[in-house]
Amino acid sequence: MYEVRFHGRGGQGAVTAAHTLSEAAFREDKDVQSFPMFGVERRGAPVAAFARIDEKEIDIKTQIYEPDIVIVLDMSLIDVVDVTDGLKEGGKIILNTAKDPSEFDFGDATVYTVNATKIAVDNGLGTETNPIVNTAVLGAYSRVAGNVKIENIKKAIENNVPVKHEENKKAAEQAYENVIGV
């Protein structure tokens, strides 16, 4: 079983990212679950979203406490939220930043970086101050985790993202190509 946690702010599309990822994995005949933090969500407030992927049928119904990988959509969260909380030993973390992974220290977690904000803005997804990076980070996820193909991420984007399908798919592809640390 592979468990994923997305950190974002309300309105940035972390929940959509989790749902898109689960559809992409489902397309590969895996069993999946994805869900928001149970409860209420406010625009701008820190939120998390989760996904489970397994070759076998998933029985477990609790929320995710020990993810294999963490994806941070908004770097301003790093100071507010313990993004590596419960991360499995030797787990992975993907950060949306222009910096190199070597500039971060998250203990024994392997750090990967991708400039998802630039990719999103270049593709006309949101603005510099309010970029929509959820599809770009999924491209990075595909490369880093290696358990869901980028083709299926792109197909799932068509079903889960309401607008700008081509731009969003391109963003995922560019992030896949440009993630640093792999």
């Binding site: 989790a18 749902h19 689960s22 559809e23 489902f26 069993d31 999946v32 679950q33 994805s34 869900f35 928001p36 149970f38 409860g39 119904k61």
Partner: peptide, 10 residues
């Protein structure tokens, strides 16, 4: 509630 209502499954 939430555990199923808001959780995506196949």
């Amino acid at each position: 509630g939430f555990v199923l209502t808001h959780t995506v499954e196949g």
